[in-house]
Computed example of a mutant assay.
Amino acid sequence: MRQTDPDLETALLGPLVADRACGDCTACCTELTVDTPEFAKPAGTPCIHLCDRGCGIHAVRPRICRTWFCAWRRIARLPDDARPDRSGLLVSLNFVSAPQNCLEAVSIHVRMLAGSDAIANGMAAAVLDSVCDQLVPVWFSDGAQKMLMHPDNDVARFVLSGETPPASLQDEVAAWRERYAAFGSRR
């Protein structure tokens, strides 16, 4: 997590869903990197303020912790059971400052948490179906590898290569290129 413009997150993921709350879920407190001037921690490491009842400094927690929300809190079409502590999946908007390609710069990242059975029970498919419908790249990681799930491989190949796509893909490839031109087609 980095301090980002909350309006960008709202534009890409939507506003907070009124009837969803973090409750006992603290997945982001362990799984994500936090890199802000006021607080930092590496990914995969529990926050030093995390205790058996959740955040030990909740009333005075850092700004990033007060303003950042996972995609389950923002995307109403995600299943209710997709809350990270229930689903074994943490879905978030991801910002990469030095992306390998334009589809990594700003994307949705679906992370499978350790011990999750989200693939076997179908939750991973349900979540991916819910987020792979916009002009926002979607990456899935299972801890061992990171895979681009959206756009599909044919579209991604033409977006990244700069080659002329077949007529059947021209409009879709053009839309992706236009949206992500600011990040360059290759790095």
Rank of each mutant, 00 (worst) to 15 (best):
R2M: 11
L8Y: 01
T10R: 14
A11L: 11
L12S: 06
L13I: 02
L13A: 04
P15Q: 13
P15C: 07
D24M: 04
T26N: 13
C29W: 03
L32C: 05
D35V: 00
P37N: 09
A40M: 12
P42A: 08
T45V: 13
P46T: 01
L50Q: 05
D52F: 05
R53G: 14
I57V: 15
H58N: 08
A59K: 11
R61L: 06
R61Y: 10
W68L: 05
C70V: 03
R74I: 05
I75F: 11
I75L: 14
A76I: 03
A76D: 15
P79R: 08
G88F: 02
G88R: 08
N94K: 07
F95W: 13
S97M: 13
P99I: 00
N101D: 14
N101E: 10
C102S: 10
L103Y: 06
S107Y: 00
L113E: 10
L113G: 05
A114I: 08
G115S: 11
G115C: 09
S116V: 01
A118R: 08
I119E: 15
M123D: 02
V127E: 12
D129A: 12
S130E: 10
C132A: 10
C132R: 12
D133N: 13
Q134E: 14
V136R: 01
V136L: 15
P137R: 01
P137T: 02
V138R: 09
F140I: 01
F140A: 00
F140D: 05
D142M: 02
Q145E: 15
M147S: 15
M147T: 15
M149N: 03
M149A: 07
P151R: 02
N153M: 12
N153I: 08
D154M: 10
R157H: 14
G162R: 09
G162K: 09
E163L: 08
E163G: 06
T164N: 13
S168M: 13
L169A: 10
V173N: 09
R177Y: 12
E178R: 13
A181W: 11
R186S: 13
